[in-house]
Nucleic acid binder design. Structure first.
Lengths: 144, 144
DNA sequence: ATATTTGCAAACGTTTTGCATAGTG
DNA sequence: CACTATGCAAAACGTTTGCAAATAT
């Protein structure tokens, strides 16, 4: 886990009155490694690879803790729920409506500027955002 | 239902091999009237007000039809699934992390420009997008 | 030592499936 | 008429709850 992240995550956890358990650390590590949208099944698979086999109740409570305390963000794509680290979520996604492939794209500066404008206009303190583009990838355009 | 929408929706339905049933029409009407994110419970409530009481199986299948065929878009906010008309979805949302209030904001042109750039860069034919900003609304900023 | 976290068992709610009937184009 | 849409019953699945034992700070 990168140093600057460790610190910020650790802070957020203790701020929320939580403890850095083996499971919690492992889940965060997985989300950092993936650095993109990960679904629950993938999280379980990766945990099992690390010889961690939490009860499903425990996993539900863990993901609830992480989302409730804003360490992790949930997103619904193609009828599936995905998770990603809030701290790493400053990129966006191109999602193909045919093959469901998800491609990560970097943040455009425009959006950061817009956040400032929106903040002022609406008296709204923006701390995060979600942006996804839906359409047809190159392959599927050709094949259809 | 506004004329230009009726036509486009009707087309999409028959293109998908579907029929314009009472339930389907009612759901689309509700989504048009709400013109924002609506959850399943609200849909049921509004249907009941119209004396339409579909079996829950039917409702599930209906919402599946509408999302599968891209007439309606699903979004996950605050642990809840919301639906909205794809044709009307060209606005974005400010979501307060404390009181969960959702405020609709109009599309900024910047994003449409970016879509074009992204399309070309990635050989990806973008047909829709989702954008949500998370943060603290004015009231909650004051009270916390 | 205290509070959080965990596993187990069971309850609960949501979503899906199969099939026969009704309704639409 | 052909095909989609619907309701019902039941199954499958996902999520939540309560409690006692284990674990982290």
């Amino acid at each position: 886990m990168p140093k600057h992240l460790t610190k910020s995550l650790h802070q957020k956890i203790s701020l929320a009155g939580g403890k850095l358990t083996r499971l919690r650390k492992a889940i965060l590590d997985i989300l950092i490694q993936e650095n993109c949208l990960v679904d629950k099944k993938t999280v379980v698979k990766k945990l099992n690879q690390k010889k961690i086999n939490p009860d499903r109740t425990t996993l539900y409570r863990e993901l609830l803790f992480l989302t409730k305390n804003n360490l992790v963000q949930k997103t619904l794509l193609n009828e599936k729920i995905y998770y990603e680290l809030t701290d790493l979520s400053h990129h966006h996604h191109l999602i193909c409506l045919i093959c469901n492939k998800i491609k990560k794209i970097p943040l455009e500066n425009h959006l950061q500027c817009q956040e400032k404008i929106l903040s002022q206009k609406n008296n709204f303190d923006i701390i995060n955002h979600n942006l996804e583009f839906y359409g047809y990838c190159y392959k599927c355009q050709k094949n259809n």
